[in-house]
């Protein structure tokens, strides 16, 4: 479904993403790991067509995102890093706008919004100005706008950042429920999250893929069996490792 080939992105002289390749099939939940500044968000921005790659290509259902961005964007639901939202809107008016932009028939919009709001637990704040919402609620509104059109592909940049433990749990459940027929790529700094929801993990450092395998393979690499240890070893070591 998604094929990424030798993807590169430079900002001036600096290479933020340096030859990333992988492909993801429906049913997979791919956890994107790596230290701060590794290039996770930059890679996601290229998959969603927001950034133009310096080199390489992203293909969605065989179509290059840069050749036909609109049809690619239609298939994708995206939660950008930090969940940016129009702060002077309410979750309801924002979701109405997204639903209209996503071409959900107007007769269905209201019921769809209610359904999604219930899923991410924002029903109580639907008519409160987004500016006054707490960080966790904003994140949940961001998640709601990403899934409202039931996309085939979900790109979530740190979806559980800022959520309380209960909400983290619920969002993980939600991701698992949705994962059956979708491609899901999420980035996270929480290693247990990878174990809990991901079928596959990719670790990148300095723009390069240094691990690509299942969470249990990742865990198996450490004598102590702790993900933290493996993560540290892989991201501070130099040699690329593949499972």
């Amino acid at each position: 479904m998604i094929e990424i080939q030798n993807l590169q992105k430079s900002f001036g002289e600096f290479r933020a993403v340096d030859g990333v390749s992988f492909s993801v099939k429906p049913g997979e939940v791919l956890g994107f790991l790596g230290p701060n500044g590794a290039g996770k968000s930059t890679t996601m921005r290229m998959i969603t067509g927001f950034l133009t790659p310096t080199g390489g290509a992203v293909r969605i259902a065989g179509v290059d995102v840069n050749v036909d961005p609109i049809s690619a964007k239609k298939r994708i639901g995206y939660l950008p890093e930090g969940a940016p939202l129009y702060s002077d809107m309410t979750p309801r008016t924002l979701l109405e706008f997204i639903a209209e932009a996503r071409e959900i028939p107007s007769a269905e919009r209201a019921s769809r919004i209610e359904k999604i709001a219930a899923k991410v637990n924002i029903t109580g704040v639907l008519d409160q100005q987004i500016e006054t919402l707490s960080k966790g609620y904003k994140r949940r509104v961001g998640l709601a706008q990403a899934i409202i059109h039931d996309p085939e592909i979900l790109i979530l940049d740190e979806p559980t950042d800022g959520l309380d433990p209960n909400q983290k749990h619920e969002v993980r459940q939600l991701i698992q429920e949705m994962s059956k027929d979708k491609v899901i790529i999420l980035s996270t700094h929480i290693l247990e999250e990878v174990e809990a929801v991901c079928t596959r993990a990719i670790i990148i450092t300095q723009g390069k893929v240094v691990f690509d395998g299942t969470p249990s393979e990742l865990k198996g690499r450490s004598p102590s069996g702790r993900l933290d240890d493996v993560f540290r070893e892989i991201t501070t070591g130099t040699a690329p490792v593949t499972a």
Binding site: I70, K73, P84, Y86
Partner: peptide, 12 residues
């Protein structure tokens, strides 16, 4: 505010 990323990843 970063909302440009929200806006320009919508299908238009």
């Amino acid at each position: 505010t970063g909302t440009i990323e929200l806006l320009l990843t919508l299908p238009f």
